[in-house]
Design a protein around this nucleic acid. Structure first.
Lengths: 331, 331
DNA sequence: GCTTCACCTGAGAGCGGTTTCGGGCCTATG
DNA sequence: CATAGGCCCGAAACCGCTCTCAGGTGAAGC
């Protein structure tokens, strides 16, 4: 009653074989006769033996875990759990991890201590790491310490990455609004340092200039309250706004509320196009027209890439950003 | 150039000390003189040494990880990433884990293989496990194999758990609708096997019977589409419905869309009270009145409990479920 | 009948740390 | 001056498992 958990040595003793043989049959590796196999299996079930994954990992050098890393720029570290984007990343990764019985380790990192934290993670990655949200410089640093890395966001050219056309998506969105006859198209942007936000803003600016319109924008920080506040402010300052391109659906949800609170209607008075096609897009009323980012697909592809082995430097996999039309642009 | 990663032996050699001493200073344990400490530190920075956490875990027996476990009854395993509830659990856990440099391991389990999978996890838990969504029988099984466990959902009385008054919350919600003058109050329920869903349904039934109303309900499976479909169906079948109690906000978001699609208004024609106070509640238009479940607080408390050591059997920590009034019940 | 070879099997050396234990040195005490 | 007692430090065992390597056995081949 004193031994807490049976080890492989216990199994071996009970089965009357050596630990080496026990190990072989437990991992059903070749080199063990059938009679011994059955004896070992019997011992395993008798003792309720469960291999210690830590010891196994140390002995084999590999370990079955992939790390998901996000640097959280929002208020507090809880941000990672709060934004629908991360949920979708998880939703994409879990199915491919399940089945290879790998586990998923989450790391939310605050910017102040990011550098050291990242080094520590890089030193202990096993199957590899998915960078869900990170600055290019930190991504590069991480990659220099661990080759089994793939980024979900725009980054330095050497770091393997999943690439979605954020610029093009934003460009498309603005043009779509223009085609609907809108001429005063405002933008609500994400955080100034966020690579995706930067690209979406670039696309907006490009389109606006191309169409001969003037830029009108505010920062919404990629969260709902920010979107709400930004929309309110924009409407006060520029009452003639008739459309908004909003860099993520969560902000768009907040914006829709601000717009209706001001007594205007979506889409009749103000057309809205969001970005992401996250859960927020379908929960709003009216549901949002949005630029769909195939986050789950990207996360799944990233994970599969890691499972296959070392991604080649500069590896890129492109994903479309498609317009999904819902009620926020119908009138 | 051939050694991939420096080990503690390398550090010791460079510093001219024994591995034992190197270990002592790296863990800043007592028993090392100041001059040696500085030499070791110098060697560490020179080599860029990062301790191997796996080896460390094996040697110490403990490991700094807590496991988050969810049995996914929804369509596919991605469900875990998809539902706002889990995001909130993560949001609650991460801040308390950060700082004790523990990592968070995610396990989404499908019911068919749940039993074996759970045993494997239980054998390898270190700091402990948080059960985010699980049946009572599986929770009991897990707890019998690992005492460092705390459940987020109602379960057998022995398993330590965070407890929110789901029954009372549902009861309150229905009474609130009744006070607003509503007399035909329908319910949209969660999955029949889900412990939280069961409690919420119980509360609804209790209130309805107590008020002398008749039960009208449908199953919405805890997802938006289900809520949408259930609401549509209920309105067709019982056109006189003037209020709905909906067992989670995500379903409520779907229901609001169904109701407005039928040409009725929220809250003028149909009042809505959701449950959770998740992101879905604030993204809808109008924003939802809901019964707030303090999921982040519960998850944080659960994690802290694990960090403190073995929770005592039957440990309970109660959390209030409060009414949050928003526009879906204002008229 | 003896060698060759294939196939099992177990001893033992790691994997990269931590931790016990004992020895050496130095200072305080009698 | 001898002894006791502290404090550092390093040798070595150990955590639980994997995997190489060598030995042993039996069958096949000459």
């Amino acid at each position: 009653m004193n031994r807490l958990k049976p080890t492989i040595a216990d199994v071996a003793r009970v089965a009357g074989v050596s630990p080496a043989t026990a190990s072989r049959v437990i991992n059903n590796a070749p080199g063990a006769s059938e009679p011994l196999r059955t004896r070992v299996h019997a011992a395993v079930t008798e003792l309720g033996y469960q291999p210690n994954e830590t010891a196994r990992a140390l002995a084999t050098g590999r370990q079955h875990a992939v790390d998901l890393i996000a640097v959280t720029y929002g208020p507090g570290i809880g941000w990672l759990g709060t934004h629908p984007y991360f949920s979708r990343v998880l939703a994409g990764m879990m199915p491919v991890l399940e089945g290879v019985n790998a586990q998923l380790r989450l790391h939310a990192i605050r910017p102040e201590t990011a550098a050291e934290t990242i080094d520590g993670i890089a030193a202990n990655t096993t199957l590899g790491a998915v960078l869900a949200d990170i600055t290019p410089s930190l991504a590069t640093r991480f990659y220099s310490r661990c080759r089994r890395t793939v980024s979900m966001v725009p980054t330095a050219s050497s770091v393997p990455a999943m690439q979605a056309d954020n610029i093009g998506g934003a460009y498309t969105a603005v043009n779509q609004l223009h085609q609907l006859g809108r001429r005063r198209i405002a933008a609500i942007n994400g955080p100034a340092l966020n690579p995706c936000a930067i690209d979406r803003r670039t696309g907006y600016l490009r389109a606006v200039r191309n169409l001969g319109l003037t830029e009108v924008s505010a920062d919404g920080g990629f969260h709902r309250e920010g979107g709400n506040h930004a929309a309110k402010q924009l409407l006060e300052q520029y009452p003639d706004i008739d459309a908004m391109f909003i860099a993520c659906d969560l902000m768009a949800a907040g914006a829709v509320q601000a717009i209706t609170a001001c007594g205007r209607r979506v889409p009749d008075d103000v057309s809205i196009i969001g970005f992401d096609d996250s859960i927020a897009a379908v929960c709003t009323n009216p549901p949002l027209t949005t630029m769909r980012l195939p986050v789950e697909d990207m996360a799944a592809a990233a994970t599969r890439l890691l499972l296959q082995g070392n991604p080649t430097p500069g590896h890129r996999q492109r994903f479309p950003v498609d317009l999904v039309i819902r009620d926020s642009t119908r009138h």
